[in-house]
Every structure is written in structure tokens, then in C-alpha cells.
Design a protein around this nucleic acid. Structure first.
Lengths: 155, 155
DNA sequence: CATTTATTGCAAGTCTATTGCAAGTAAAAA
DNA sequence: TTTTTACTTGCAATAGACTTGCAATAAATG
């Protein structure tokens, strides 16, 4: 398996690709391809959640030719496999994607000025979920929580 | 002022239009028009938050001809005036609008099956906001919180 | 009721994302 | 290794939500 995407080797990336191939793709009759490796590699090496067009542009910079359509299809496959989380942040008009692999459930805060996104490593909603289920008679499956404001640089 | 939209008179609607005109529109050099009355009237009489196209279609049913573009412009004006809140619910791909007038800050739960949206008359995030400001050094301006799951009918 | 200028409708455009299909290619079978 | 199978990709076209330009319309004011 060719791991030398962009000429950079990462042990974490190797494990991620291995696991994705054997437990994710192969198990669902899918294949590990050049483009899927490239997208996984990029997401693995990036802090901020990326949009489809950002992934497209970054890979273009890295001399990896992938159609934008393929980026959309790829992140959707990775989402189905549970490897990637899709974020629909308020007032962004586009989705962002981040690796879920090995990360705890968390939320985000976004700067209204520069768009910087920072992880919030907390979730205060477990108790609240029960209360809501009692009050509304819904079965709660998911929640989204997002803060926005001004980051230190933009205040 | 013609209040007889759809031939139905409502005292609450009368007060809303009066207040909107004098304190909102007039104060910002804007005008109370047939279309703004119609949109306000519809939102005032609806429980669920409505999307632009839903507003458009409902007004068409009510024999009130308003262009979809005008609906978008109208809800944006009402949003600027602070009379309407824009909701960008997860996985909906479109914004919804609800009257803010006279309502407390609240959040929503949405059925993943039928799309029904129910108000949650609570907000557990006041204390959390301070903690987040301390941890991230952001100044928090806003937050969004949304639950999803299955409503009683769809379970 | 005439004037001023905000507002509307229509057409066209933007942006994000999806779909159909022929060509390309990874993985299994021979 | 070669062949076969069918999953993937790129390209073009399309869909859907929303915006913009502009001429025509219609509120508000004197």
C-alpha cells in the first residue's frame, strides 16, 4: 500500500488507513483508493474542520488531482463508515468535516469575524436529554451545540 | 391600515403590526407594505417555524401573490428588526423563521422522520458560557442548541 | 394629489451539493 | 501474471437555496 502521500510518512496515518481498509471499506464491499487515502491523510494532518472546497483546494496545492465531486462522495463514504463527522455550523452555508477516529464527542465555538473554529472538550447535555425525553415524548438520537463569538485576536 | 388579510382579524396581529410599523420599520426609514403584513400575519398564526418556500406556498394558497424573492427579502428585514429569528436546523439545508416577538429564548427538537419541530422552553447554557469564555478566551455572543430524534408518532 | 424613494417582481446569477454515465482502476478469480 | 468483476472517478449537467440588478410599482410625506 502506497502511504507516501505528499512524501510524508506518519505512523498514525498508517494505522488509520489500515483500519479504514480492513474494518470499514472492505467490510462494506468498498475499496481503498488513491483519493480516499489523500482525503484521510489531509484530515489526519489538519486541526480545523475542513469544507469540501477546502479539501479540494488543499489537495490541488499538494499536486493531487481530485475532482470536487469526488471529494463530496468521499466525505460521504467516510461519514457512512463513521470515520468522519459532518459539521453544519451556523451561518456558514457549507458543511465541514473532521476525523472522528479516536476522538471523544465534543462541540465547537466559532469566531464570527475570522471563522476560526476551536474544539470545546465538554458536553453538558446528558442529564438534559432525559428531561427532554420526558417532557416531549421524543426519543432523542442526537444533538448539536455550537457557540459563536469573537476569538482572542478579533476582539 | 388594512388588517383584513385573509379576511381574519386578530387583536394580537393588530398590535404586532402597529408595533412593527412604529418602532421597527418607521424608525429605520422603511415602510409597512402588503407583503410584510402578509408574512407577519402568517408567522403570527403558525406554530411551526416556516421556511421561505413554505411561506411562499402558504401565501399562494391564501390567494396572496408574493414573489419568493420578496419572501427572502422580507424575512431578512424582519430579522434585522429583531422581530424574527432565523433557525438553521441540522440536515435541513434551508433556513426557517419564527416570530421572536414576546417569546423567551428557547431551543428546538426535530423529528428525523417527519420533520416535526417542537419548542424546548429551556436553556441550560448560561453557566456554561462563562466557563467557555474562561477556557477559550473567546467572547461568546451567541449559541445554537438543537436536539433530534423520533417524535411520539414516528417511534 | 404630486413628489420622493423604499419596495416589488422578474430574470439572471451564485454557491453548495447531487446525479448520470462512460472511462478508469482496485481487488478477486483464474 | 492475466483476466474478470464491479467499485470509483471525472466530466457535464442538474438541483435547490438564496442573492443581485434593474425597471416598474406603490408607500409615506408635504
Amino acid at each position: 500500500m502506497n502511504l507516501l502521500i505528499k512524501g510524508i510518512f506518519s505512523w498514525r496515518l498508517f494505522l488509520l488507513l489500515e483500519k479504514t481498509t480492513s474494518q470499514g471499506l472492505r467490510a462494506t464491499g468498498r475499496r481503498m483508493t488513491r483519493t480516499r487515502k489523500a482525503v484521510l491523510s489531509l484530515l489526519e494532518g489538519t486541526q480545523q474542520p475542513l469544507s469540501a472546497s477546502e479539501i479540494f483546494l488543499q489537495l490541488q496545492k499538494d499536486q493531487i488531482a481530485i475532482d470536487l465531486v469526488t471529494v463530496y462522495r468521499t466525505v460521504n463514504v467516510l461519514k457512512e463508515l463513521g470515520l468522519v463527522v459532518q459539521l453544519d455550523l451556523h451561518q456558514e452555508g457549507q458543511s465541514r468535516y473532521e476525523l472522528k477516529e479516536g476522538r471523544k464527542h465534543h462541540h465547537h465555538i466559532r469566531c464570527q469575524m475570522c471563522g476560526k473554529i476551536v474544539d470545546l472538550l465538554l458536553c453538558p447535555l446528558k442529564k438534559l436529554t432525559k428531561l427532554i425525553e420526558e417532557r416531549t415524548q421524543f426519543v432523542v438520537e442526537d444533538h448539536t451545540l455550537e457557540f459563536s463569538g469573537f476569538c482572542p485576536k478579533c476582539q
